[in-house]
Design a protein around this nucleic acid. Structure first.
Length: 423
RNA sequence: GCGGCUAUGGCGAAGUGGUUAACGCACCAGAUUGUGGCUCUGGCAUUCGUGGGUUCGAUUCCCACUAGUCGCCCCA
């Protein structure tokens, strides 16, 4: 009997995990600069939260949730996204009453969606996301977008495309919805089955259809931008002004519609335009969700955020041929030959480690040559060789692996010597 | 949820209805009885994703399942 990892999940092994750590660290550092603080919420929540938060007409809720009943008879769901939980926590802990407004939070952790795995799509994947709650200033929209771009650019990605749109406020959306229905209604029979059901449920999504994108009615469809009321239009214009001032290039795409129900006003996506990136090009998606806090039971509070997947970020790095500056070198490898020396090596390695030096020794009872080879494989900067001869003289031979130079050092000052040499 | 392709040692990858399953990398050992990265020599799959079927005989043919992969839907 042997076991396999569950479908759509992955083990991140040494050699790969360092990249994750690097990216996570970078994201955390940037959040500090932008003054976003980490929040950690559970990996599962009451199912109802997602029904209300994400929206029960969305695909995520309708067919992608990991939902189960726990032993207490509660319906529990592994979180498919991060925003609903953050907002839940915001409301539950009454963060709207905190002195520092807006409340700026970030999270990083696994999300779960029951989907068919594909390039850049997993059943468990890691999202990094931020949420800014409590401000209606278009500047915060620009800040959130800037932070997302900053992460990608700090990693060296260049083939990026930022697409933004405004979905308007409730009033604007309503007007647009009516216009869309009127536009498509008579000839909806010429569209795909999905679009036909979308007409009544969420006509905006028709614009996002991949199958019918070339239909003549698509080009002439009423654009949300023409239905934005005064305040929505002003808001969107301001966001664009800020982005321009920040030197962030963007493209307005009136057909950008996000799949989660809670979005309004600013919506954006960052895509990779790298060659051979595959069918899924979206690296990051986000937008404003001004009604969500209330929907979750809190006071009327505006909010905006985004989420990006580390898996796709890594894929984009690979597509652009970028390798991260990851250090895994070992400082010192202690080679020992002979029983006495082996015993002493145990002590020496420990002493090195206590002094803050990354040290290793052999545990496979290998010959000197093989131990050197192991040290070489570990990219050891120095190798310290200890045999009976050295022990007798109370010295140890320290070899610089780059230059090949070897120095005889008194055992008493060995740790200090290595420490100095490494500087 | 739907469709295409794939599944052979740690990795990559040949191959055949029939006694020993190429090769490369990696790994181990030796040449070099205490010194790495080069070279040479040798070693390293009771077994070809799992289960079932066809057959005298299957890793090779068929079916199912599982998984990967690419695409659709959707999304991060």
């Amino acid at each position: 009997m042997s076991f396999q990892i569950p479908r759509g999940t992955q083990d991140i092994l040494p050699g790969e995990v360092e990249k994750w750590q690097y990216i996570e660290q970078l994201a955390r550092d940037l959040c500090r600069r932008y003054n976003y603080q980490e929040i950690r919420t559970p990996m599962f929540e009451h199912t109802e939260l997602f029904l209300r938060g994400v929206g029960d007409t969305t695909d995520i809720v309708q067919k992608e949730m990991y939902t189960f009943e726990d032993r207490g008879g509660r319906s529990i769901t592994l979180r498919p996204e991060g925003t609903a939980a953050v907002v839940r926590s915001f409301v539950e802990h009454k963060m709207h009453g905190q002195p520092n407004q807006p409340v700026k939070l970030y999270y990083i952790g696994p999300m779960f969606r029951y989907e068919r795995p594909q390039a850049g799509r997993f059943r468990q994947f890691v999202q990094f996301g931020v949420e800014a709650l409590g401000s209606n200033d278009p500047a915060i929209d620009a800040e959130v977008i800037a932070l997302a771009m900053d992460i990608y650019q700090s990693l060296g990605l260049t083939k990026l495309k930022l697409v933004i749109n405004s979905l308007g406020d409730i009033e604007s959306r309503k007007a647009h919805r009516q216009a869309l229905i009127a536009h498509f209604k008579e000839r909806i029979g010429e569209f795909c089955a999905d679009c036909q059901t979308r007409l009544e449920k969420n006509p905006m999504r028709i614009l996002d259809c991949k199958k019918d994108r070339d239909h003549e009615l698509m080009a002439t469809a009423p654009s949300i931008l023409d239905y934005l009321n005064e305040s929505s239009r002003t808001y969107f214009a301001k966001v664009q002004t800020y982005l321009t001032k920040l030197g962030i290039p963007f493209e307005v795409d009136p057909r950008l519609v996000r799949g989660l129900d809670y979005y309004n006003h600013t919506a954006f996506e960052i895509m990779s335009e790298a060659e051979g990136f595959g069918a899924i090009t979206t690296l990051c998606g986000g937008g404003r969700y001004n009604g969500l806090v209330q929907e979750i039971g809190g006071p009327e509070t505006p909010g905006i955020g985004f989420a990006l997947s580390i898996e796709r970020l890594l894929a984009a790095l690979q597509a652009e041929g970028i390798s991260l500056p990851i250090e895994t070198d070992l400082d010192c490898y202690v080679v020992a030959l002979g029983e006495k020396a082996k015993e002493e090596a145990v002590v020496l390695v420990h002493a090195l480690r206590q002094a803050g030096i990354a040290a290793e020794k052999d545990y496979q009872d290998r010959k000197v040559k093989a131990q050197l080879k192991a040290a070489d494989r570990l990219n050891a900067q120095y190798v310290a060789i200890l045999g009976d001869d050295e022990l007798e003289k109370q010295v140890i031979n320290v070899k610089n692996m780059k230059t090949g130079e070897q120095t005889e050092v008194p055992l008493a000052s060995f740790v200090e010597y290595v420490k100095q040499a490494l500087v």
